[in-house]
Structures are given as structure tokens and as C-alpha cells.
Design a protein around this nucleic acid. Structure first.
Lengths: 114, 114
DNA sequence: CAGAATCCCAATTGATACTG
DNA sequence: CAGTATCAATTGGGATTCTG
């Protein structure tokens, strides 16, 4: 907790890791998708309905990236009409507390963020 | 710590706060500037030397935003040649542990982030 | 030294239409 | 239903030039 904590967010592993994370989740929709899936599996259309403003294209891309990064699992059922369900991976769930902590920090320290 | 923690990162204050924060710090240079200033006040040119690849334009813009958001203080000394020093505000310092925590999470959960 | 102004390119996002 | 394809609009960022 001391002020002297060594912060090595430049040039080191920490810096690259943080950049890799932000590159994956800091865009316009990713965190919204993760948050929307936090307590339930959802189908494509349900996700789109719960996330106001997202286009099919962006939701599709976001889910593809999340699936590739192993933060979301995609389950396709061989039915007609097709049904596909998305769900957070355990890995993604461990990220949620950090997101909440950051949101909390923001509400306390950034004006108009409340 | 339970799985049932209420995560309200959608539509609520939390969601807007998190978005406001990411809009301010998730770009290419902001966190690098914050990290570079974590233990010392620095002048414009020193910052540019310590952050490889940053252009004058982007460093200038980034510092202006950080100053406006009260994460960095700008002190100008009336000398010739001019001297300007930048320093983290106490507010910005409280953000650093969160950044470190996220970097740590990333190193454990994102392949190639190490 | 510390920047502001200008121009240009690349990447991100959105709107719309179409398909298995 | 769950996407993909295409194109237009917007934004982020870099290179260069100029200035108090």
C-alpha cells in the first residue's frame, strides 16, 4: 500500500500485458457484451436486444474476438431455425471484479462519470 | 467473493463510469505517460525521450487531456528558454494499483501477453 | 524548449443489403 | 435465427512545418 510500490508499466512485461488487455476489451462494445453475459447464457438476438445501439456487424465481430480470446464460449445447436448460445468462460469471470473496481474508481474520481 | 456478486456494468452508473474512464485512458499513449510520470516530475522533452515512438503532436494532445481531466498538473516556469514540468496528481496515483492489477491479470490469462 | 497548425493515412464503426 | 458482404462516415494517429 506504500507509495514506493514499484510500478513498471513501461517497456516491461507489465506494460505489454496491459496493452494486450486494453487492445482486447477497451473498444466500444466488448465490455458491454461481457457485462451482459455475466449472469446468463444468451443467444445472438437476445444479446442484441439487451445492448442498445449495437449493430449486427459489431456484435458479430465482438463475439468472434471474444471467442478467439477464450473469454466467451460459442455453442451452436444443430436445429432449424439455428440456435447459438454465448457464455462467459471462467477466465472472463475473474475479470469482472476488476472491471467493477475500475468503475468504482471512475465514479469517485472522474467528474460526470457518476 | 461469491459468484452472485451483483455486476451492474450495463446501463447504470457503473457502466457509464467505466466507459468514461476507458475513453480517457485506453488510447495508445495515455497510460504510458502516466506510468512514465509515476515516480518523477518530467519536462516535455524528457517525456518524449522516455516514451519511444511518441510524436510531439500526440504527446502534446495526451498531456492536454490528462491536464484537463485533473490527472496531471502542468507547471510552467517563466524562463528563457521556457521550462514546463508535468506531474501526476494524487488522483492519478490512486489509479496506478488498479493498472498494475490489470496488467497482472493479463499476464496470467492472455496468451502472448507475457 | 514546448508547443500549435496543417495535411494525410489507416483503423474503427455504422448503415444497408443479402444468405445458409 | 445468426450471421456475412459491401460501402460510407468517422476517428485516431503520424509526418511535417511553423512559432512564442
Amino acid at each position: 500500500m506504500s507509495d514506493g510500490d514499484d510500478v513498471c508499466l513501461i517497456r516491461g512485461d507489465q506494460g505489454r500485458a496491459l496493452r494486450a488487455l486494453l487492445d482486447r476489451i477497451a473498444d466500444k462494445w466488448t465490455l458491454l457484451v461481457i457485462a451482459t453475459l455475466h449472469d446468463r447464457r444468451l443467444r445472438f438476438t437476445e444479446l442484441q436486444r439487451r445492448i442498445p445501439g449495437v449493430s449486427q456487424r459489431m456484435l458479430s465481430r465482438t463475439l468472434a474476438h471474444l471467442t478467439r480470446d477464450d473469454l466467451v464460449t460459442r455453442t451452436s445447436y444443430p436445429e432449424v431455425p439455428p440456435r447459438v448460445e454465448y457464455e462467459l468462460t471462467p477466465t472472463a469471470r475473474t475479470l469482472l471484479p476488476h472491471a467493477v473496481a475500475l468503475a468504482d474508481w471512475s465514479r469517485h474520481h472522474i467528474p460526470d462519470a457518476e
